[in-house]
């Protein structure tokens, strides 16, 4: 009896494609969610000076021992740090660092990695081989290790962290763009362009460069989230931003000693970090699904985005 009912329910669900329909609805909501969160944080970052009640404390902060480690209140929405600085402002300013780092690192990786990868993939030969060996070397290094090495050479700072992260991320972009270029190279429309007498670089510029973008874009989107996390991690380890800058990771590191009694100190930056990274993950996820099957047929991706 129960077995029949169960079978009937499952069959109905499958027949009427409820799961598929749910997924469709969810997908667009997910995308909306992700974009909403992202937009929220971008606005926060841009208008930090306006939003933060104590911008100076957010930026650096002259210690104010009298207000040390106060729990959340109306004057200090997120409470205060051990130096008496307003946590709310510090979290807001932390957004700027997170987004800035992610933007610069991803931007640099794209600007350097993408063209290199596309050219290497299309032209092939010794250029390609050489580039592959170099990227292999870089790929062999885990991010944190590379950061440590670089930091050992120059003292930790925002820019040393950005450098370390860029250096470890760009090989991925090269690899991916190269793979795209390789598969595009033998496509008929490229042959047709060759048949019109177009030179190698002309073809790369006109045909390969744009068509190779979609998966690279997806990589960049999900990478954003990863970099923010890595930034937080490096700062947490003391390898990135240094105090008194209000980086989220750094803040969390400083809050460990006071956890769990002074719970607000670790919690709020943590939540901020979580939401921003998740936003990128959600966006990247939906983008992957939207773009991927279409990639196989190389249909009008731009219009569908």
């Amino acid at each position: 009896m129960i077995g029949d009912f169960f079978e009937m329910t499952v069959t109905t669900i499958i027949r009427r494609d409820w799961i598929g329909k749910m997924r469709e609805q969810l997908k667009s909501k997910v995308l909306l969610c992700g974009v909403a969160i992202l937009v929220f944080w971008i606005i926060v970052a841009i208008f930090a000076y306006l939003i933060a009640p104590y911008p100076q404390q957010g930026l650096n902060g002259i210690p104010n021992p009298a207000q040390a480690l106060r729990p959340p209140s109306w004057q200090h929405l997120f409470g205060t740090t051990e130096l008496g600085l307003d946590l709310f402002s510090r979290v807001i300013f932390g957004t700027r660092i997170a987004l800035f780092t992610a933007a610069v690192v991803t931007g640099a990786s794209l600007l350097i990695g993408y063209p290199l990868g596309v050219i290497a993939g299309y032209v092939g030969g010794s250029l390609d081989e050489g580039l592959m060996r170099i990227t292999d070397v870089f790929l062999a290094f885990p991010t944190i290790l590379m950061a440590i090495l670089i930091v050992a050479a120059i003292h930790p700072s925002l820019w040393s962290m950005i450098l370390a992260l860029s250096v470890t991320r760009w090989p991925q972009y090269v690899r991916l763009s190269r793979a795209q270029a390789l598969s595009l190279r033998t496509r008929n429309f490229v042959l047709a362009a060759k048949g019109m007498g177009e030179g190698r670089f002309e073809i790369i510029r006109k045909h390969i460069a744009i068509n190779a973008i979609p998966p690279v874009l997806i990589l960049a989107t999900t990478d954003f989230g990863f970099i923010i996390l890595a930034d937080a991690g490096l700062s947490f380890l003391g390898l990135g931003v240094t105090p008194p800058t209000a980086d989220w990771g750094l803040t969390i590191a400083q809050s460990i000693a006071y956890f769990p009694v002074y719970w607000w100190y670790a919690t709020f930056p943590g939540i901020a970090l979580f939401t921003l990274v998740t936003a990128f993950a959600l966006i990247g996820d939906v983008l992957t699904e939207r773009l991927d099957p279409k990639l196989a047929k190389m249909t009008g991706v731009w219009s569908k985005l």
């Binding site: 496509r187 429309f189 048949g195 068509n211 991706v301």
Partner: peptide, 16 residues
Amino acid sequence: QVQMIFQNPISSLDPR
């Protein structure tokens, strides 16, 4: 002076 027409028409045109 010499042009080629390929099999599988859609693949011979740049999709973008």
